[in-house]
Write a protein that binds this DNA or RNA. Structure first.
Length: 559
RNA sequence: UGGGGCAUGGUGCAAUGGCAGCACACCGGACUUUGAAUCCGUGAAUCUUGGUUCGACUCCAAGUGCCCCGGCCA
């Protein structure tokens, strides 16, 4: 396998390779990640992150972090720290290159003045409604604003007074003088500056005019000498404008490249919808483990490397696409399988009394954390006793075909312990199962029989005397529908929100789990991967999140 | 007066004029002290119609379908 074949090729690499061939940027690759601080980062941002940081890394370049904070009414400091934490968690680093579009308000203002002086920008007095009317439609040209040909000196004066705060919000705008008949709506004299008398989270009350995205982004890229400015497909129509400003300003000209954003089945990605889930209390905040935010995935126990591998696996292209969430889950399981120590925990318990086990006897087994690789595996002590708990689903009084767990008269292996045979059941007056009784075979200590006798079923257990209680939170997809963002008329994504996507139970755990630490993920054998909840768990009142269940092919056959 | 994009198995991504491949999902089997993992195997795709070419997923033309654009949001 050659070096190149390890790295998947994609159209962005092709473009960069071409630039390197022609020498457009002198072989330099410098990217930027430009989040707006108005919400938490989600798995869709992870794609942008991997592209922005990953591409630069691969080509020996750097990536800047730059907050796109040009709209003070929508943005908040609350999110800037959360965003940084998420980026670091994924393993990316911007060094000391932490920038803000608001750092450039002064040079941006100068650039606007330059365009005014060139006769390429003007102060408009049209109201928002009027401007909409003048803009025309998709199929009809717009018409020029009556203020479009105002003398340059007047524009200079008015713009200066806009900055000075002489005018109320919405009364004036600065617009680029391009072409009201352009088939590209973005070129119909786009607004460059608007008046907003709102305190900005960084610049305070210094400014009351704020640049629009289109007037800020390209020039910020230029100021930072960014070479490749990757963004999502909907900005494709903005590229001519991105280029126009840079050309008219005659400043360094980065290349904007657009790619398809990530869509995942069974989830919603729009900030508006995620915010709704949070604000209406359907989930416990932005870090509720069901959320597609990076903070939620961290809390849930997803390894950051799994997220990066996932993004690498899905590739980058320009076609709109929907990735099945099963692929993400597969990669999470795949990594956790290799790294998670095994433990025994009984989620929904059934009491088992081993009648022929001496009531004064208690044993301890040394059990490897990684039974696949016992030679290199650490071990821990697991106590055993006359009364144990097993999983309720591991016993059937009348077993269905192909069932090879416990049922009356049948023998199974208690993992790492003994073979037991079910001898009877105890029920209450309503016929509810209370407990079952077994006999064990002392010859099978450790789970092996000297006579070579086979048992088909191996089940896990926890000794009653030493079990610890812990809350376990089990999560399913938040939305039953594959495409909750693409619904027929009259339906909303909330129609498909599944309130049962979170289930809480009190489980019985083997005692070694008392020492679990936040950030460690365990495999609760035959149940799935679990991690301590970073927000709600307390010593003595442990709470575990199920990161993800194990593949359950029995459930498939059985149903 | 409309413009800009995109089309390969169920899903996602490759193949850059030379045998359509990989992963997930699905289905079957083997193995198993986790019905997990692992191993083996089956099925399944180039939007349509023309053209260029010895040869087309790839180039050309026409068509079809889907996405984006009429915020003083980003």
């Amino acid at each position: 396998m050659t070096e190149e074949s390890l790295t998947k090729t994609n159209f962005i690499r092709d473009i960069i390779d071409e630039h390197n061939r022609t020498g457009r940027f002198g072989g330099r690759v410098h990217t930027r990640f430009p989040p707006e601080p108005n919400g938490y980062l989600h798995i869709g941002h992870a794609k942008a992150l991997v592209i922005d940081f990953g591409m630069a890394e691969d080509y020996g370049g750097l990536t800047n972090l730059r907050y796109d904070d040009t709209n003070p009414v929508k943005e908040d400091v609350e999110f800037v720290d959360a965003i940084k934490e998420d980026i670091h968690w994924l393993g990316f680093d911007w060094g000391d290159r932490e920038y803000y579009a608001s750092d450039y308000f002064e040079p941006l203002y100068e650039m606007a003045v330059k365009l005014i002086n060139k006769g390429k920008a003007y102060v408009d007095e049209l109201s928002a409604d009027e401007m909409r009317e003048y803009r025309g439609t998709l199929t009809e040209p717009g018409k020029n604003s009556p203020w479009r040909d105002r003398p340059i000196a007047e524009n200079q004066d008015l713009f200066k007074r806009m900055r000075a705060g002489e005018f109320p919000d919405g009364s004036l705008t600065l617009r680029a003088k391009i072409d009201m008949a352009s088939p590209n709506m973005n070129m119909r004299d786009p607004v460059m500056y608007r008046i907003i008398h709102t305190e900005h989270h960084r610049t305070g009350n210094k400014w009351c005019i704020y640049p629009m995205y289109d007037f800020a982004h390209g020039q910020s890229d230029s100021l930072e000498c960014i070479t490749h400015s990757m963004c999502s497909l909907e900005y494709e129509n903005h590229r001519p404008l991105y280029d126009w400003f840079l050309d008219e300003l005659e400043i360094f000209h980065p290349q904007q490249i657009e790619f398809a954003r990530l869509n995942l089945t069974h989830t919603v990605m729009s900030k508006r919808k995620l915010r709704k889930l949070v604000e209406e209390g359907h989930v416990a905040g932005w870090t509720d483990p069901r959320m597609p935010t990076l903070a939620a995935m961290r809390r849930r126990g997803y390894p950051p490397t799994a997220i990066r591998e996932f993004i690498d696996t899905i590739g980058v292209a320009k076609a709109d696409s929907f990735v099945e969430v099963e692929l993400l889950e597969h990669i999470v399981r795949d990594q956790l399988n290799l790294t998670s120590p095994r433990r025994m925990a009984v989620l929904e318990r059934l009491k088992v009394v081993i009648d022929n086990y001496p009531s004064d006897l208690e044993e301890e087994f040394d059990v490897p954390d990684f039974p696949q690789d016992p030679e290199n595996s650490a071990t821990r002590k697991v106590p055993f006793g006359r009364v144990i708990y097993i999983e309720r689903s591991d016993f059937e009084e009348t077993p269905p075909p192909k069932y090879f767990r416990l049922s009356p008269g049948r023998e199974v292996r208690l993992m790492n312990a003994y073979y037991v045979t079910c001898t009877g059941v105890v029920k209450d007056e309503h016929g509810n199962l209370l407990e079952i009784h077994c006999n064990y075979d002392p010859e099978t200590r450790g789970g092996m029989s000297p006579d070579g006798r086979k048992v088909k079923g191996t089940i896990h257990w926890v000794a009653e005397n030493h079990a610890i209680d812990a809350e376990c939170r089990l999560y399913e997809q938040m939305f039953a529908n594959e495409h909750p963002e693409d619904l027929p008329e009259g339906e909303t994504f909330m129609d498909y929100f599944d309130p049962d996507s979170k289930k809480v139970l009190i489980a019985k755990l083997e005692p070694s789990l008392t020492e679990a630490k936040v950030g460690e993920v365990f495999q609760f054998v035959r149940n799935g991967y679990f991690t301590l909840d970073s927000e709600d768990s307390k010593p003595g009142a442990l709470i575990f999140n199920r990161t993800i269940g194990l593949v359950d092919s029995w459930a498939k056959v059985h149903k």
